[in-house]
Design a protein around this nucleic acid. Structure first.
Lengths: 180, 180
DNA sequence: ATGACATATGTCAATTATGACATAACAAGG
DNA sequence: CCTTGTTATGTCATAATTGACATATGTCAT
């Protein structure tokens, strides 16, 4: 059982979902392609941690809706108690910045503009998620309690926003550095 | 040629370094073990992008000091102009937070305290790097110019600090949420 | 002295992750 | 009508990454 498998169980602990949906929703925390997800779901099903029902759709292709089993919940709870690996970030842009002096200022500036716009797009999507959480929640977000199912959504979007703000802030700071 | 290979060239564009040193210094941008670095260096040498000299040491094991060649510099410059992959972060802790409601508040709080202390340690190390850059630089850091070899060190430490501050800020905010 | 740790390089099996291929049904736009 | 995009599931070869094993020297603490 690798981390991604536990991640899938984690998502399934809130809602039953298809492999396709799991693939989409796990991206912010643990990027993975469907070609990695589907085999892991089959494994989890064999272990009895998840189960699925075929759902026939007329407008779209049929799907398998997965749910967490009792055994899956138990496995998930044990995993939470285990030591947590530190986050891993691999950033090609930072590697390029390390030797940015090799190109001229104009090229460097255009790279930064592009990266800033990438982060702006990300921020926009996070703001949309934030609004979505706000709409779905009955209470004002600040009053959400620990055990409320919306609590995690709220705090994780907050986390994502803080990080993307830091990235954007650095980009803008760099741009002002390069313009002078 | 994968991203890590170009990353190694990037580091070598500033200083000649051993595989061991490259492994240590590339961690913040692109975590990798020595077992991945050494074979890539051999590949890069075969391609003529780097060269090395054996250095015999009496106090420590002998080492190979790698340098960037002209061909390596050319390859590096071409890579900088190519489109840059977005950063990838995999965060087990975030996956656990998603289903944090499964455990009690006390356990959640202790997980956050631990994660906060992890980030504090990271921040301390970044602050040391910052001080080191400050000492090595002749000019005040804010006055460092684009082509100064210290410029990249300065802006990358700044980047790391901003991100770790965001992480720490979120941890403390979460702690206050859980205590109430 | 004995074990642990840092330096230093290397190989190799196993795991993790990606990209390509494959199929299929419907929607939307040109 | 045709291409492109989304939904939906799956396999497989390849690539990237890790963890274990291997070796050697020196230091430092117990």
């Amino acid at each position: 059982m690798n981390t991604l498998s536990y991640g899938l169980l984690s998502l399934l602990s809130k809602d039953s979902r298809t492999g396709y949906e799991l693939m989409q929703h796990i991206q912010p925390f643990w990027p993975a392609k469907h070609s990695q997800i589907y085999p892991l779901l089959a494994q989890l099903e064999q272990k009895g941690y998840v189960e699925f029902v075929h759902v026939i759709q007329s407008d779209k292709p049929d799907k398998k809706v997965y749910s967490l089993t009792e055994a899956g919940l138990k496995a998930l709870q044990e995993w939470i108690g285990l030591p947590t690996d530190p986050p891993v970030t691999r950033d090609e842009f930072a590697l390029k910045i390390y030797c940015i002096g090799l190109v001229n200022k104009e090229e460097a500036l255009s790279m930064l503009v592009e990266r800033a716009s990438y982060y702006k797009g990300k921020k926009e999507r996070f703001m949309e998620s934030f609004e979505k959480v706000k709409r779905q929640s009955e209470k004002p977000l600040e009053e959400l309690e620990f055990h409320d199912p919306m609590f995690a959504n709220y705090v994780l979007v907050k986390k994502a926003m803080l990080k993307v703000d830091a990235d954007l802030h650095w980009c803008e700071w760099m741009r002002s550095k390069l313009k002078s």
